[in-house]
Each structure stands twice: as C-alpha cells, then as structure tokens.
Amino acid sequence: MAIRFVRVVVIWLLVLATLWVTEPYLSALWFSASAPRTVTPRGSLADSEQATIALFKNVSPSVVHVFARAAPTDSLFSDEGVVQSGSGIIWDAAGHVITNNHVINGTAQIGVRLTSGEFVAARVVGTAPNYDLAVLQLERPTSPLRPIAVGRSADLQVGQSAFAIGNPYGLEQTLTSGIVSALRRRLPMTAAQEVKGMIQTDAAINPGNSGGPLLDSSGRLIGVNSVIISGSGASAGIGFAIPVDIVNRVAAQLIRTGHVPEPGIGVVAAKQDEATSLGIDGVVIVRTLPDSPAAKAGLEGATADGVIRDVITGANGKPIHSMSELASTLDDVGVGNQVSLTVDRGGQTRSVKVTVGDISQLDQG
C-alpha cells in the first residue's frame, strides 16, 4: 500500500514538473497574438484634450521657423558658416513676423519657413535690443498668412494655463503646456536695461523656442518666449516670456518707424560691484555723453584723475541703487518728460531736473 502511494506521488510530481517546464511554450502557442489585435473603442476625448487640440490647430499656422546666417551665401542651408534658428509669429497680413532680437542679431541673411512648407526670404524692419524683440518682413510669400490672435498680459493670473508653440532644437511645430508660474519678473536684456513684467512659466521652453508664442487657453498671444534659466541649457521648468502688452507697443512702433526710442539721460555709469566696493549706494557717473540731457543739466562724470563727482541716488522721490533701476524709472517717465534726480556731489545732496531723451540717437563716443 505504501509503495503504491509513493508511486502515485512520484507520478504527480513528474506531471507537475512537465507542466512547469512546458508552460511558457504552451502559453506562447495558445495565447500569442499572431494576428492584428482588435482595437478597443475609446469614446470621446476629454473636453480639456479637445480644447488643446483645437488651440494647436488654430494657432500653429501663425508660428514660423526662423533661420539666420552671419554671412550671405547662395543657399541659407549651405555648409558655409553656422545657421542659427528660432521661432517667429506672423503678426499681420502684410507679412510682418515678430521674433527675438537675439535670434537674428549679427546676421546678414534671414529666411522663414511657413507651416505650408514654403521657405521665404525675410529682411529686418527694425530691432529693439532692450526688449529682445525684432520685426521681420517676409519677401513675397505665396502661401496665405494667418496673423496670430493677440490677448493681454496686464490681467494674467498666476496658475492659469499657458501653452508654448515653437521649434525647440529644430523640431518644428512643437506644443508644450504648463501654467503661468509668476508675474512681474524683472530680467536684464542689456547691461543697463531690464524688462519689467516678464511672465514666468513652467511650459517647457528650450533653445529654438525663442521668438515663439506663449498662449492662454483661448489661443491668444500673451507673451513672446525669450529666456530660460537652466544649468544645462535645456528646459528646467523656468522660462520667461516678454509680455504681449509690451510686444504690441514695440512691434507697432518698429513697423511704423523701424525704431523704438530708448529713454535715458546720456550717462555712462560705473559697474554696480565697483560702486559697492567703494561703499557707494547709487549710480556713479563715469562720464556724460556730448549734448546729452545729463550734460545739459550740469551733471558731471569723474575727473581725469578718477575723482568721483556726481552720484545719482534717487529719481522722482524713490531711491536708486543701480543703473537698471534708473533705466526702469526713465522708461516709466518716457522720452520728452522731466525726471527729478537726487544727486550727491562731495557729500552735498541736490535735486536736478532732467528731460528724458532718446539716447539711441546720441553719439556714444
């Protein structure tokens, strides 16, 4: 009896072992999808997905790819020299395109690829380096142009949705999304000029997105993507866009005159760290430009032997600590209007009225 029980147990163990060894082969034989799988119906897209799809379809024809080369050649895509690229926005039916100044700065040949695939030569209408903006004119495009819908940036709120369309790393017509992360950021564009009210977003922005649109959930332009902050140079969730209210004003002036006045008083200032090392809190005037508003108002730069004469410590009753703060105040005052400066000379403080001028028209020598 015991021997029979042992035999039964051994047989069952052999059967189980055989099944364990052959199971993968049997599964592959019986369950493999050797024919195309049946598609599972998915139902309707979510409302938010449909809205995003519609946004991209409506706006993407207004976004172009901008190419620029320092030296002109027979073909913009020849092997001669480096071609830099970015994004652009169709601004009006006349063929004006908005992009960043740094996308085309220092270049001699510019081309634009439309969403239709057409490649069109372009020329510079005007630039505003202090705002990192430029306006291009397309040369005889044959494809229909769709100007972008323009919104407002003054009423934006932190937390609302934001969408970016551009050409990161040359990958055309790329859509990313996020939110408005912060408002009223101040970022330097030049050594003495910063743009106020910059929009911060976590929508992925990478090299090549520069000059492309930042959009609200209605597909309206709320900013022009310009800057990222990243240790690697790639998106780190901190991107910045120039507010559309500034873009609207600057673009109109560039199209009308090719020039945007640069409010200033015509002073060359010492670097802020140099002033700090001397224990001075304010704008140290190194020299005044010839025939500038500052020179006409009697402000003086340092003497030939390095003796500091005038230091600007306030403007219109507010303290001034740096040249960028002074430039921001002068931008608010506007060309042709007066600003009241608080000036320190040799320990004596006085108030000086200066008429703000367009310093881009002054001799910088």
Rank of each mutant, 00 (worst) to 15 (best):
K296S: 08
P213K: 14
V283W: 02
L136Q: 03
S226D: 04
A297W: 02
M323W: 01
I165R: 08
S161N: 14
N209I: 03
V195S: 01
H102R: 09
G106I: 05
P319C: 01
P168G: 10
V311H: 09
I265Q: 04
D305V: 11
H321V: 00
L175P: 13
V195M: 01
S230C: 06
T329C: 04
P263C: 09
V39N: 06
G197H: 06
I199F: 06
A191H: 09
E274M: 08
R69K: 14
W91E: 01
L19N: 15
W30I: 12
I179Q: 05
I229K: 11
A68M: 03
L29M: 13
H102Q: 07
T73W: 04
E49K: 14
D92V: 11
P141T: 02
G111D: 05
Q173S: 11
T99C: 01
G117R: 10
L13S: 15
P263D: 09
V158F: 01
R287I: 00
G231C: 04
Q160D: 13
D245A: 06
Y131F: 12
S60G: 13
A297D: 02
S292R: 01
R186I: 12
V8L: 06
A315K: 11
G346F: 02
N100Y: 00
F5E: 14
V10I: 13
L299D: 12
I229E: 08
F240Y: 14
D155N: 14
A304T: 13
S351V: 12
G223L: 00
I104H: 05
A241C: 01
L341R: 15
V267S: 07
A304R: 15
A122L: 04
I265C: 00
T288Q: 05
V135I: 04
E194V: 07
S218T: 11
V10T: 14
N248S: 15
N58P: 11
L136R: 07
I359N: 02
S153V: 14
T355K: 04
I359Y: 04
N101H: 10
S78P: 06
